[in-house]
Design a protein around this nucleic acid. Structure first.
Length: 271
DNA sequence: AGTGCGGCCTGTCCGC
DNA sequence: TGCGGACAGGCCGCAC
């Protein structure tokens, strides 16, 4: 499940292979992703040259001289750069063949991902325009989130997973950052104090940056790698550890469902 | 406006 | 061993 660090790792991995290079052909084998891929892309994309590979939340933006591809990896998506001789497998839904002889290949067994095209400023695209500030930017601060949270009854975990508040904090990192900052996931967002929001924002930034750094260690092998960055190996404090011992207090990690999402916490360390 | 939930998918895991 | 069913997960869009 690609979280923001994996998306950023992917972005960094593919960028040097794309920037300055041109699309020769676009092959779509399965257009039924979260939204059907526009038919016109097959004829629009050839001859377009990439000039930037950006990220916004968990969206990757491939900017060309004529517009922008906006893509999301969903639950099971991955993007890799492979030689054009490499055969696609069952879940490899599209290929962008480049003038370098390499192919940018999208795989997504569950097809929760998406691919959209826009000619205008991607910031104004309907998928991106409502997103909150980037979690790793200065704009995402304790002050900002405190202000957004006033009078909100929604639990703090669902609140930080709301992309309108801050994009890119998925279930794993929501659980982990709430543990690190000692906050119970079920607490109403509006009842969390200013000082605790300062801690939470720092935790989110720390946990995301650290995971990006760990993912970065696999970058050099990106072309040949299986696309799984190293952050899965990082030691998680609570996520998926129901019944196991808390790494801090040795008590049992609990789990419950909040807003239809698996939620893990330590009843002793989090209040 | 805020909140909660349905729906989209398929690989994996569990129980029989 | 084989089979069916539950589950996970991001996120838009809808209903209340």
């Amino acid at each position: 499940m690609p979280e923001l660090p994996e998306v950023e790792t992917t972005r960094r991995g593919i960028a040097p292979h794309l920037e300055g290079n041109e699309i020769v052909t676009a092959v779509f084998r399965e257009r039924r992703l979260r939204w059907p891929i526009e038919e016109s892309l097959s004829r629009l994309l050839p001859k377009q040259k990439f000039h930037a590979v950006l990220r916004r939340g968990k969206y990757i933006i491939l900017s060309t001289d004529r517009g922008h591809l906006i893509l999301h990896l969903g639950m099971s998506g991955s993007l890799r750069v492979v030689p054009k001789t490499s055969m696609p497998d069952k879940h490899d839904h599209y290929d962008l063949l480049l003038n370098t002889g390499q192919v940018l290949r999208y795989r997504d067994p569950r097809r929760f991902g998406s691919l959209n095209w826009t000619r205008t400023d991607p910031k104004c695209h309907w998928l991106l325009k409502r997103l909150g500030p980037e979690p790793l930017s200065a704009e995402f601060s304790g002050e900002y989130i405190l202000k957004k949270s006033r009078n909100r009854t929604l639990n703090i975990k669902a609140f930080i997973m709301d992309s309108k508040i801050v994009p890119g904090v998925g279930n794993i990192y929501a659980n982990e950052s709430l543990f690190t900052s000692g906050i119970r996931p079920g607490l109403a967002a509006g009842r969390v104090s200013a000082i605790r929001y300062e801690t939470l924002v720092s935790s989110i930034k720390d946990v995301l940056s650290e995971a990006i750094q760990q993912g970065g260690t696999t970058l050099k092998d990106f072309v040949d790698s299986d696309g799984q960055p190293g952050y899965f190996k990082q030691s998680l404090f609570v996520y998926g550890r129901s019944g196991e011992n808390c790494r801090t207090c040795k008590g049992a990690i609990k789990s419950r469902v909040l807003n239809q999402r698996a939620t893990y916490y330590c009843p002793t360390c989090q209040h």
